[in-house]
Design a protein around this nucleic acid. Structure first.
Lengths: 182, 182
DNA sequence: AGAAATATACAGACCTGTCTACCTGTAGGA
DNA sequence: TCCTACAGGTAGACAGGTCTGTATATTTCT
């Protein structure tokens, strides 16, 4: 029985941190191996290639991020509606190690090599659609698609450090979507 | 007198193409040298390091992109107002080699190493502010900041291939900003 | 003569991925 | 209960490629 975390989990945890912080191309296998305290052969036993680790990273990141985002939105959605989305984003932007959206960054680095990136955005849009339905909005899919545009834009602005008035403007843009005339 | 384009210009032209198409980290000096038909020493005479070329790339890209974007917007702004922005973006998204915004991609790859990226976004926002003023909108700076959020979001959505209904939704989001209640 | 470009080799670092050799805990059969 | 087989982990060397940047020697243009 292993008292410590498995090698595979330690690798994935390290990848979650380094891939997000420094980017995928900039993070070498050697660095991940060193920081997770794992032998090289153990790494290649669990992940036959770096791309396999990248895929695992994207899937894990998706689960973790969606969980945190959902939780942050649900905390206020009942009272604030779509404004809760802006607040959840703003909390995320304020985290000290915030560096933009891992999936946007991966697409920027690698192009369309990893479909998990687009998949993540589709599932996020599905969740926003569900939120729109819970508000009984007339065209939930259209509202969600527009909200996604606003959300992506807010993430990029935050990533570039252009955060002046960002939370309030994002909130206005999102709540405007819930008024009549979508 | 040189009958052909100078080595420096050939390097920059090649960098504009390769850095945008494949990304900055993924594009090696050797590749730029080979494709621009220049000797390595000529390269390092004009650009002491790769970072110098990256800076020159960002500045050139800014000038070129702004020129094209301005032209595309002005073509319709008098008749269509802010919808002209959505149309200009959509034209860009439709180009066969579109791969997102070079400045967003550079930030995604390199973080905050190159201030030219944020500078570009600030100058673009200034132009949008000017457009808002030309429409005699009450709060042009606020409208422009919101428009920037929408524009960045549209760019990211297009980059990820999520273009279904994108032009129309972007147009609605942007024109809604020009109505009363900011 | 001198500036600018060319071709090419090279250094040193880093990258992914493979190979060998060894260690350790555990499950199963005799 | 003991022995054995094996899965998983460790350590580190190594191959072959790519990367940035430098050095050398030659050519071309003015």
């Amino acid at each position: 029985m292993q008292e410590t975390v498995s090698a595979k989990d330690r690798i994935l945890t390290t990848a979650l941190r380094l891939f997000y912080r420094d980017g995928i191309r900039a993070t070498g296998i050697d660095k991940i191996i060193a920081e997770s305290g794992v032998a090289k052969m153990s790494f290649y036993r669990h992940f036959p290639s770096k791309n396999d680790l990248i895929r695992a990273f994207l899937e894990a990141r998706h689960e973790i991020w969606m969980g945190q985002f959902r939780a942050a939105v649900e905390r206020r959605f009942a009272e604030e509606g779509f404004a809760a989305i802006a607040r959840a984003l703003s909390e995320w932007f304020g985290e000290p190690d915030f560096r933009g959206c891992a999936f946007i960054n991966t697409v920027a680095e690698t192009g369309s090599e990893f479909p998990q990136t687009v998949q993540h955005k589709c599932e996020l849009e599905l969740y926003v659609t569900e939120l729109a339905k819970r508000l009984s909005l007339p065209a939930p899919a259209q509202v969600a698609a527009k909200a996604m545009i606003v959300m992506e834009g807010a993430i990029v602005r935050a990533q570039m450090g252009l955060t002046d008035g960002l939370e309030e403007m994002t909130m206005q843009l999102l709540t405007d979507l819930t008024r009549c005339g979508n």
